[in-house]
Amino acid sequence: MSVEQLLAYIPLDVALIAANFDRFLWGVWMTLNLTFLALLIGGIIAIPMAIARASNHRLWNPVIWGYTYVFRGTPLLVQTYLIYYGLGQFTVVRDSWLWDPILSSAWWCALIAFTLNTAAYTTELLRGAIIDTPKGEVEAAIATGHSYRSRMRRIILPSAFRRAIPAYSNEVIFMLHGSVVASTITLQDILGVGRWLNGRYYLAYEGFITAALLYFIIVFAITRVFRWIERRYLRHLTRRSEPTPSVELAPSPIR
C-alpha cells in the first residue's frame, strides 16, 4: 500500500498541514519561549516571596499572600486582557516610555501576565514545600551552628526544592496549557497558527488537530523530563520495594 493510499484514509487535508508546517514550527517556538521565559522569571521571583511567606515576615507575608490570592483566584485570560487591552485606557501609560517597546506589544503583555500568574502559583507551592521541612533537619542545622541564612541556603531550600518537584511539574504543564491564551491576543503561538490555518482555508479540523497533537507531544516530553529529574533527585524518597514514583500526565490541577 502506498503512502498516498494510506493518507486517503485520514479524513484530513494532510498535504495542507504539511505545506504550512513551518508556520506551526514557528508557533511551537512562540509557545515554548513564552512558557519557559515566564516559568524562569516567575520561578526566580517566587523564591524570595516563598521564603517571606514561609517565615511569616510581618510586612511581606500579608502583602505577598494578597498577591498570590488575587492571581490564583482569577482566570489567566482576564489577567492577560487586563494588561494587554486594559492598560491602554490610561493616557499616562500610553505616553510613558514603557508603552512603545513593551506595553503596546502583545508578546510582552503575554509574558508579563504569564510571569505574574506562574509566580503566584510557584510561590504557594514552594512555601508549602518549605514549611514541610522536617523539624529535625532544622533543629540539627541550628545545633551545628548554622545561621538563619546558611540554614536556608544549605538545608531548607535544597530539600524543599526537591520536595516541590512533583507539584512543580504540574505547574509547568499548566503554564503550557495556559499559554494558549496568547492566541487570543493576536499572537501566533501553536493554537494561533491552528486558528489562522482554519480561518484562511475555511476548515473545521486540520488546524486544531495539528495544534492538539503538537501540544500533546510537548506535554509528553515535559513529563518524561520530570520523570528523569524525579528519579535523579528524589531517589532517597523511593521505597525500596516499589518502583520510582512517577509523575503521570498532570495528576490533578494543584492550583
Partner: peptide, 21 residues
C-alpha cells in the same frame, strides 16, 4: 485521562465547537 490532560482546554473547546458542528 492522558489524552484530555495532554491537550490545552481551549484547543479542545475550539475543536468541539467548530469541528463538532
Amino acid at each position: 485521562t492522558t489524552l484530555v490532560r495532554g491537550v490545552p482546554d481551549l484547543v479542545l473547546i475550539l475543536l468541539v465547537f467548530f469541528g463538532g458542528q
